[in-house]
Design a protein around this nucleic acid. Structure first.
Lengths: 341, 341
DNA sequence: AACAAAATGAGGTACGCACCTCATTTTTTG
DNA sequence: CAAAAAATGAGGTGCGTACCTCATTTTGTT
């Protein structure tokens, strides 16, 4: 005998198919006593609902909304592309995925988008946005409507989101720090930190982890106060130049956030004299090229394909009320060198 | 109108459902002309077969055999556990997975197991075994029977396997070499290489990559001839001791294969004086512990969960004649430090 | 006890596909 | 041109589930 089916449940519970169906799909009109009988039968038989048959019968489509920041950012763009790919590939998986763009620094606009989404019969939402009270409340409202929500890349812990798809940024910062420390030849070198991220929280956490590791394990290194690029190429060039002029003995540069292209260009003139260790985040095309050309030593990153697929899997699992394989959904902090690209 | 179905194909091709079915499932008794008509209709409509409905109809179970070496090896054991997990989780995915154990150094026995598998109506086989002519031929025979075959962890390029699930071991060796080089404080240090692997090919390739990177990028480092542990704890202790006595200035140890536990224990006495950089492969429980306790600097590894799931996905895709998302199946060479465990 | 309300049963249809049978039509062959 | 062979059509059943309708039974209320 194969896997137990609804018929087997009906038989062993001594009820009709209709009642089994009512219990399975939480429809009203069944006494608690009967519900219990059916549930007993279910787990005595070890019944497992055939999801694909169920989805076939109800012609189900998983409607998910992905909310990502707009604006020029290679990381977000590659993430969008991965999503696109996963969604295309998953047209056979009954996926209906739509991407939304939000201005990352305008909480009001973000809330507007989330409200629209809430009114559009989505079953799940994945959102990458800075943590603000407005956004948090909008997410709470989505949750109240029974919509599954995952935070993407940047966590929104107080929002009641069901899950966070991304890395621990403190640990990512620690990893960068550890590498920076171990790559240093001069134990007393000066480390320049350049910040700027679309999501403040990430930058802060990475910086925290970085500083902690340096303090704990490489106390002789001298981490300079961080510079803010604000995504402005000229500004970056200016402040980098000044930093290297003031500190000719800089032996390491840690780039916390985005805008790596401008930064790398700005550093270029000082590489020959100082040959500082350079470490950054997110394996964008720019960073990939920089690794290949030996313009950078290591990139700490998260796999965007994994991010996209994990978010989809988690949302699906939440919708199906299924438990997920956590080991598969843990986004790893990847260290990429030239050799393991 | 929703997604096109077989009915739509029949209509637009001007044939009956039975004929569409014959074409779709490659059953005989259809003229080439008609086949073409149906196929035209299929791609003009952009028809995509609903795999879950199809699998439901035919009560399909994907029967896969996983052939892994027996014997005490933490890496293989964690891989087995991941497989177990994936298989258990995938009972809802119509998976029927069975694991086989082979003595890795007995090609004859391996062939016997593969023959048994060939007679047991499997649809797919994943195999982790050393490359020998006997094994290669046995795999060729499996392929002739129409069974999908993937090589696992260690490639079998001449066997006609459909796919390789694992990392490029040359690149893994290069990565180890790069890290070893960049972690060195003394540019003229001596590097000890300890070999021993269940699969000769892996060890050779890693060694190759390691040596190449050192030669290219850290030419002043002195890589000593490699020592062979052969999985014998006492022997390892002996040869390590001798190596450190002969070369008191060893500043790095690269462990190519398995048997890391014995190796780490053997090195312990020399850590205080030399504090060499230690790099090894495969994130087993032993290695994890060593990282946490700062007994080792880096582990180059591949994610066993990913290996297991990828092998399953690939086999499934091969059975379904579907194309696979290659970016998802590329097993990454992971660098694990204490901080990004 | 009589009645309304609630619970349950019986049975059907649909989802998209696989697989089967048996007639009927078309093509090939001698 | 007739007979044999091949191709096609028409229709049905089942996979495991969802969802619906309408009787019928059981329960609770007064």
């Amino acid at each position: 005998m194969g896997k137990p089916t609804v018929h087997d449940i009906a038989k062993t519970a001594g009820v009709s198919l209709a009642t089994v169906d009512r219990v399975l799909n939480a429809r009203p009109g069944v006494r608690q006593k009967t519900i219990d009988r059916v549930n007993e039968a279910i787990d005595s038989l070890g019944y497992i609902r055939d999801l694909s048959a169920a989805n076939l019968a109800r012609q189900r489509v998983y409607r998910f909304a992905f909310v990502l920041p707009e604006g020029p950012d290679q990381f977000v763009e590659t993430l969008r592309a991965s999503l696109q790919e996963a969604a295309a590939n998953g047209q056979s998986d009954r996926l209906g995925i739509k991407q939304y763009r939000i201005p990352p620094r305008d909480p009001h606009a973000i809330v507007g988008v989330l409200q629209r989404i809430g009114n559009s019969h989505y079953e799940g939402v994945a959102i990458m946005a800075p943590e603000t009270p407005e956004v948090r409340d909008a997410i709470l409202r989505l949750k109240e409507q029974g919509i599954a929500v995952v935070a993407l890349v940047s966590d929104l812990p107080t929002s009641g989101r069901d899950w966070f798809v991304g890395t621990n940024n403190i640990a990512a910062g620690r990893t960068a720090g550890q590498l920076m420390g171990q790559f240093q030849k001069d134990p007393n070198g000066k480390i320049l930190v350049v910040s700027s991220s679309m999501l403040a929280r990430d930058a802060i956490e990475r910086r925290l982890g970085f500083d902690k590791v340096i303090a704990e394990r490489f106390p002789d290194l001298n981490v300079l106060p961080s510079l803010e690029g604000h995504g402005d190429t000229e500004r970056i060039a200016r402040i980098i130049k000044r930093a290297f002029e003031l500190n000719p003995d800089i032996s390491g540069v840690y780039s916390i956030g985005s805008g790596n292209k401008s930064l790398l260009e700005a550093i270029e003139p000082f590489r020959i004299a100082n040959s500082p260790i350079i470490i950054g985040h997110e394996l964008t095309p720019t960073m990939r090229k920089a690794l290949i050309q030996d313009n950078i030593d290591a990139v700490i990153t998260q796999n965007v394909g994994h991010l996209a697929r994990s978010a989809i899997r988690v949302l699906k699992a939440k919708c199906d009320n299924a438990k997920l394989l956590e080991s598969q959904e843990r986004i790893r902090i990847e260290i990429v060198l030239r050799e393991n690209l």
